[in-house]
């Protein structure tokens, strides 16, 4: 079932991809026999055929997810999205501190350990990443302190 749903969705994507290749993509003028649309056309056909094959002979029935695991995964994704959203506004140190502390706590660390871990990762990560390795990391509001 899981395979069928997935390949069905992917079939729709392939068809959409193919429709665009056959109608929308067009070079204003071209000298070569194959333009920008030819390759996507081939791919859309191959991928649609693969999806049909998978629809006919699926082999994965279920995703085997329990309710508890799904909740954890949703929480993880929310945290990751929040981390991504706050990465620039709050700066690396604070965003990382919050993210690491909360995630470690959720994954089973004690409150105290999670806090120490978050603070250490935020500060050490910035120290090693931005200062020693000179990578580009957002300083955020802490810029004033540096």
């Amino acid at each position: 079932m899981a395979d069928r749903i997935f390949s069905g969705l992917l079939l729709l994507v392939s068809i959409g991809y193919g429709v665009m290749a056959f109608t929308v993509i067009k070079a204003p003028f071209q000298y070569d026999p194959l333009g920008p649309e030819s390759w996507p056309r081939i791919l859309s056909v191959v991928s649609a055929l693969c999806c049909l094959g998978l629809l006919a002979r699926p082999d994965t029935e279920r995703l085997d997810l329990t309710g508890k695991t799904s909740t954890r995964l949703v929480v993880l994704l929310v945290l990751l999205a929040a981390y991504a959203a706050l990465f620039e506004p709050l700066g690396f140190v604070i965003a990382t501190l919050l993210f690491c502390a909360v995630l470690a706590r959720i994954l089973g660390a004690t409150m105290g350990h999670a806090m120490i871990f978050g603070v250490a990762t935020g500060i050490l990560g910035f120290g090693v990443g931005a200062m020693i390795l000179e990578l580009n990391l957002p300083a955020g509001p802490l810029r004033a302190l540096m």
């Binding site: 991504a84 993210f99 690491c100 994954l107 990762t121 990560g125 990443g129 990391l137």
Partner: peptide, 10 residues
């Protein structure tokens, strides 16, 4: 696990 995410984001 959090460390992997941090490394990926960095």
């Amino acid at each position: 696990i959090p460390l992997i995410a941090v490394l990926a984001f960095i």
